[in-house]
Simulated scan of single mutants.
Amino acid sequence: MEILLPVMFALGAAFSNALATVLQRKAALSVPRSDKLRAGLLFDLLRRPVWIAGIGAVVAAAGCQAVALATGPLTVVQPLFVLELPLALVIATVLLQGQMSRLGWVAVTAVVAGLAVALFAASPAGNRTQVPMDRWIPSVAVCAAAIVVLLVAALRRPEGRARAACFGLATAVSYALTAALMKTSMHTLDDGGLTAFLTAWQTYGFALFGAAALFLLENAMQAGPLVASQPAITLGDAGVSLALGVTLYAEYVRSGWWLLPQMLGVALIVAGVFALSRMPLARAVTSDERPAAIGAEAP
């Protein structure tokens, strides 16, 4: 039962992030296209309650994620965020009057079932509250180096799948490291109070890498097709978080023959995420482009 609390809050964070994406997209679609500066666009959005609601959902997602990381293993909490894309598309079918094809519903089912199978087979455990510096230094260094390498690789490529995938992977590493740093910060806040939280280097670390993740995400969305960037972000975040959970927080997963159902679960997730990323509805929800018709997807 101890794992139920972080799971519920992680699911709440995934749902809130998905809702925020759809609400902000709905607000953006209500703003007329123009040559306004971004400041003008922001003022237009601020007058729309749906956009304010989207910001509220973002705040709620951050709070839920913080509680989930403070109470549960990184290897449990972060993989649950693969549900963001399926949840966003399901919400979009209602709020944006989109249409989910039969293949889309099969893909959503595949992601949910694959995640359930993988987590059950892996049975992640362990919840260390503090990490020694001799673990932090190499982990942060490797992640930062990976982000730089992926960023350089992306900038050397023209717009397209390769550029989008590199930006997407860099975003995923940033998200995973942000979550790892946030976990320690939340434990510091719980143990030492606000003063300890504000003086912990991890607090400023997760703020820095969190900001980097948002910047890289925007570039990933603009660099190429969603089918290249979204799987890299979704699957990369889960994979890197798993590695950080094991190396930093001494969490562990089952091995041996349990690897077979784990691989099956991962295969279902990968297939489902790629299928969902190809859907017109997914592009309508996550792209900056204004679609001709949100509900134009074939049944």
Score class of each variant (00 low, 15 high):
residue 265 G to Y: 02
residue 60 A to F: 07
residue 280 P to L: 04
residue 78 Q to L: 05
residue 153 A to F: 10
residue 194 L to R: 00
residue 33 R to P: 03
residue 292 A to M: 11
residue 261 P to K: 04
residue 279 M to H: 10
residue 253 V to M: 11
residue 141 A to Y: 07
residue 227 V to A: 15
residue 185 S to C: 05
residue 11 L to N: 03
residue 149 V to K: 11
residue 132 P to K: 01
residue 284 A to I: 06
residue 55 I to H: 05
residue 133 M to L: 14
residue 258 W to Y: 15
residue 208 L to E: 00
residue 260 L to T: 15
residue 289 E to W: 05
residue 255 S to Y: 07
residue 191 D to E: 13
residue 246 V to L: 13
residue 23 L to D: 01
residue 156 R to G: 15
residue 30 S to K: 14
residue 6 P to I: 04
residue 194 L to K: 01
residue 17 N to D: 13
residue 193 G to D: 04
residue 162 A to V: 12
residue 112 V to S: 07
residue 249 Y to T: 03
residue 195 T to F: 04
residue 110 A to Q: 04
residue 283 R to N: 14
residue 200 A to K: 00
residue 45 L to Q: 11
residue 250 A to L: 12
residue 35 D to F: 09
residue 289 E to T: 13
residue 253 V to F: 06
residue 212 A to N: 00
residue 66 A to I: 09
residue 255 S to K: 06
residue 92 A to M: 03
residue 114 G to H: 03
residue 72 G to L: 02
residue 42 L to F: 08
residue 73 P to A: 10
residue 112 V to G: 05
residue 290 R to N: 08
residue 222 Q to C: 11
residue 196 A to R: 00
residue 297 E to T: 13
residue 21 T to W: 14
residue 276 L to S: 09
residue 162 A to Q: 06
residue 152 V to T: 12
residue 19 L to I: 06
residue 237 D to H: 13
residue 174 S to F: 10
residue 170 A to Q: 08
residue 171 T to N: 13
residue 168 G to C: 10
residue 206 F to P: 00
residue 25 R to F: 07
residue 235 L to A: 08
residue 287 S to L: 12
residue 243 A to C: 08
residue 67 V to S: 04
residue 110 A to L: 15
residue 144 A to I: 09
residue 27 A to K: 01
residue 109 T to W: 10
residue 148 V to D: 03
residue 1 M to H: 11
residue 141 A to M: 15
residue 10 A to S: 15
residue 209 F to Q: 01
residue 277 S to D: 13
residue 63 G to I: 03
residue 32 P to S: 13
residue 272 G to A: 08
residue 34 S to P: 07
residue 252 Y to V: 07
residue 244 L to D: 01
residue 65 Q to S: 13
residue 129 T to K: 14
residue 220 A to I: 09
residue 135 R to S: 04
residue 158 P to K: 11
residue 171 T to G: 09
residue 46 L to T: 11
residue 129 T to Q: 13
residue 279 M to P: 02
residue 272 G to C: 07
residue 192 G to P: 04
residue 116 A to Y: 06
residue 190 D to E: 14
residue 11 L to H: 04
residue 217 L to G: 03
residue 103 L to A: 15
residue 147 I to M: 14
residue 69 L to H: 02
residue 215 F to P: 00
residue 162 A to G: 04
residue 227 V to Q: 14
residue 139 S to H: 00
residue 164 A to H: 09
residue 192 G to E: 09
residue 54 G to P: 10
residue 283 R to T: 15
residue 154 A to R: 06
residue 37 L to F: 04
residue 178 T to Q: 05
residue 75 T to W: 05
residue 275 A to C: 05
residue 99 Q to G: 06
residue 41 L to I: 12
residue 11 L to G: 12
residue 20 A to T: 10
residue 172 A to Y: 12
residue 298 A to I: 12
residue 46 L to P: 04
residue 215 F to Y: 14
residue 19 L to D: 03
residue 49 P to F: 06
residue 164 A to L: 09
residue 94 V to P: 05
